[in-house]
Design a protein around this nucleic acid. Structure first.
Length: 278
DNA sequence: ACCCAGGAAATTC
DNA sequence: GAATTTCATGGG
């Protein structure tokens, strides 16, 4: 893998096991928008970029060479998903099928607070509306990078607000959860860095100190914001999938890469709702 | 009108 | 303690 830069863009070559649609629009991140030309535009780490895949070249426009490692890591290109898929496919034939169905899913290494906040918003909600609320959150309290392009607000910024200040987001009962998370993260009462290294149960307990964070939101935060790929979030889709497709397995049976298996199963299930209605 | 959505808190039994 | 209800909002 090498870098090619210049003209205000980075190209990461020899990229395998990545499909932008599968990775950026599978419900792990809510900040990427597909463009008419098939590329995706979004903001991460306070930087606005456009990404596209040309064969095995990942083209990142509006990026500078110094951020090569940043984007390389964001797309988790240091992990061999082909090998992982091969290994976990041995666990169950349906998992093998699900992995084959969307082999271009990768677990993004998102910023911890963004993952926490967006998955607080996700509860008892649907992906389309989550994206709308997140967009209004950024427009209202993020920094404008370009015309109509905003950063994700920091916990420190949101900690100065009250739940009523979030009314324009139309996030309903989740407003007070967002504020509680911001206050506890900004004050250090909840240590997101600790969650990257603490043992799993301790990390989960740390996040669950926040009102509005239960087991599922904590697991999503750990998986998508701390790259704890052993996390296995169970939402309504995963509950159905476990009951119908993996009745003989529990979360623990999926191993150290359970979170990656979970993404294959989640996506496969959402794309095949008929599996659960017949 | 009713039900559901990448759940969790509040209330009741 | 375990089971049920409620919590805002929007789409089907």
């Amino acid at each position: 893998m090498k870098r090619v830069s210049g003209e205000n863009q980075i190209i990461i070559t020899d990229v395998r096991d990545l499909d932008l649609e599968q990775t950026l629009d599978c419900g792990q991140s809510f900040r990427w928008e597909k463009q008419p030309d098939g590329s995706f535009s979004g903001v991460a780490f306070g930087k606005s970029v456009n990404v596209s895949l040309d064969g095995t070249d990942l083209v990142i426009k509006n990026a500078e060479e110094a951020d090569f490692r940043l984007w390389h890591d964001y797309f988790d290109l240091g992990l061999d998903y082909g090998k992982i898929r091969e290994d976990i496919s041995k666990l169950h034939p349906v998992l093998a099928e699900a992995a084959l169905y969307a082999p271009g899913i990768r677990i993004l290494r998102q910023e911890p607070y963004e993952a926490l906040c967006t998955f607080i918003i996700s509860q008892n909600n649907n992906i389309k509306r989550i994206k709308g609320i997140v967009a209004r959150l950024c427009e209202s309290f993020g920094d404008e990078l370009e015309e109509g392009v905003y950063t994700f607000p920091t916990a420190e910024r949101l900690a100065k607000l009250t739940p009523d200040d979030l009314a324009p987001l139309r996030a309903g009962f989740r407003n007070r959860y967002i504020i509680d998370s911001a206050k506890k993260v900004a004050s250090g009462e909840v240590d997101l860095e600790l969650c990257k290294t603490a043992d799993y149960e301790a990390a989960r307990a740390e996040l669950m100190k926040i009102t509005g964070v239960g087991v599922k939101v904590a697991d999503c935060t750990l998986l998508f914001g701390m790259h704890r790929v052993e996390a296995f979030p169970v939402d309504v889709w995963m509950k159905r999938a476990m009951e119908k497709l993996f009745p003989d397995m529990t979360a623990n049976d999926f191993g150290e890469y359970a979170g990656i298996a979970q993404q294959y199963i989640f996506h496969y299930s959402r794309m095949h709702p008929e599996l659960f209605s017949e």
